[in-house]
Design a binder for these strands. Sequence first.
DNA 1: GTCGTTGCAAAGCGTTTGCAGCCTA
DNA 2: TAGGCTGCAAACGCTTTGCAACGAC
Lengths: 123, 123
Amino acid sequence: MKRDTRQRQAIRRVLEDAGRPLGPHEVLEAAREHHAGLGIATVYRTLKAMVEDGALAQVELPGEPPRYEINGKRHHHHFHCRACDRVYELEGCPEGLRGLTPAGFSLESHEVVLYGRCAACAS
Amino acid sequence: MKRDTRQRQAIRRVLEDAGRPLGPHEVLEAAREHHAGLGIATVYRTLKAMVEDGALAQVELPGEPPRYEINGKRHHHHFHCRACDRVYELEGCPEGLRGLTPAGFSLESHEVVLYGRCAACAS
DNA sequence: GTCGTTGCAAAGCGTTTGCAGCCTA
DNA sequence: TAGGCTGCAAACGCTTTGCAACGAC
């Protein structure tokens, strides 16, 4: 990430504006409005590089390809809308995770994903 | 699933003996000890058919290809050992999930995955 | 001008599918 | 014997990589 190219500006801006995690193809589609001709390979390469630089966080949900969001937020989880397939960020954490851990196991971290319908799709 | 073939017996037995979710290649390797010459395509087809029949449950963990476990157990979650990459079943559920859900969203289900080291790897 | 970056196309990789032969019922 | 099932190899879809041209610094 030594040069600030048009392509990288477009990709960064799309993720900043989204406010929710996006997949590579969502990024491509949106970023092409800022820079037509952008290639999917560049999106993959840039997302990967930005994760390594710590600028992005990779959001992995069960059975889904990775999505990407701006990094630097505090610990949070996600809500996956079954209707529109969008992923939203949640604040807070459930309790009692330690109590689920079997004896002798050491708990290091956790993931929580909620499923249902977002406000827009529930109505 | 109309015929009970040697291949299916081998695959079913491997999953019954494992007691934890297995991926397609783990199943292939283990089932070949019961039926050498078993093909990976048959493993995929059989796992898919057994899920549709309700005999198996598909276990999807973030960033991981699906694994499969014997169905019929009650609601549970999983613990993923970072050292040996094995997945274990957990009993119980955390509390306060409802409280994480934003206003207007309808919560239908949830996934919880714990990460750390299993008893064998922690020592 | 240098060399990091890009777009294209080819290569990878895990999963799925078409098909002729096999084997269960 | 019928037709569901299997193994092989080809096809797939998504991601990664090789390479020559491009463009940020």
